[in-house]
């Protein structure tokens, strides 16, 4: 899907009149940003579910979505800087609220892993992480809503860019967005499966070790939730 999207980006979508080829980064940057922000909000919702149901699997989902969204957010910042460098001549522009808010959100979420890591009790760890996920998850739409209202003039809005141009732009953009979302979901599934496998392995090993009880592998403390 993503490959199709990239193929379309290069062969189908028209080259932007005043920005040239660099405008193509739009099809990576914007879907990345949208998916990362949705991932943060989803992490908050999963956190809420965890607090309500006390089910460790929700905490795991919250952890995985936030973890991957942080990775995507790094991608957003990098592609965004490249684009900004090419089209505005500067790596980072302070008077653009969208950029600043994204940076703040990124900085906030960058503390998620240290927070988890510095709480020792796993039960407490997951509860506190969920509270953080909810607070930060509410912070994200709040900030971006405020920015949309205040509205920067130079940052191109996805909606205006896709509707005002030819149809091929909006089609390519939509396919890129869907491709990115699918990639995100797949990555989440993979990470979840890998975590589950690790825990099953650890549980089996512990059961084996229980029989000749000398060999109990010590569990390293980690930021990831444990089932």
């Amino acid at each position: 899907m993503l490959t199709t999207a990239f193929a379309l980006v290069f062969f189908y979508a028209p080259v932007d009149a005043d920005q040239g080829i660099i405008q193509k980064i739009f099809y990576v940057h914007v879907p990345l940003a949208i998916v990362a922000l949705c991932g943060f909000v989803a992490g908050g919702i999963f956190g809420l579910m965890h607090l309500r149901t006390r089910d460790r699997r929700w905490d795991m989902r919250s952890y995985v979505t936030i973890h991957l969204s942080i990775v995507l957010a790094v991608g957003v910042l990098i592609t965004g800087s490249i684009w900004a460098r090419a089209s505005w001549g500067q790596w980072f522009v302070w008077d653009e609220p969208m950029l600043v808010v994204f940076l703040i959100v990124f900085l906030l979420y960058a503390t998620y892993q240290p927070l988890r890591f510095s709480i020792e009790d796993p039960e407490k760890q997951s509860r506190y992480a969920s509270v953080f996920a909810i607070t930060a998850g509410a912070f994200v739409p709040l900030c971006f809503g405020a920015v949309r209202m205040a509205e920067g003039l130079t940052h191109p809005q996805a909606a205006t860019m896709t509707t005002s141009g030819p149809a091929s732009v909006s089609q390519t953009f939509l396919i890129s967005l869907i491709g990115m979302a699918l990639l995100f979901v797949t990555l989440c599934k993979y990470e979840m499966a890998s975590k589950n496998a690790t825990f099953k392995l650890r549980a089996l090993r512990r059961r084996l070790a229980g029989e000749d009880d000398d060999f109990a592998a010590p569990v390293a403390r980690s930021a990831a939730p444990q089932l």
Binding site: L108, T111, L115, Y128
Partner: peptide, 27 residues
């Protein structure tokens, strides 16, 4: 208050308070 309660159980309390509260207080 929210951040202080969140950070009090962590080992690096002072650090976590600053890291969590400052982005949330930017607005």
């Amino acid at each position: 208050t929210l951040v202080a309660a969140l950070a009090i159980q962590t080992r690096a309390r002072d650090l976590m308070v600053a890291l969590l509260a400052l982005p949330l207080l930017v607005p």
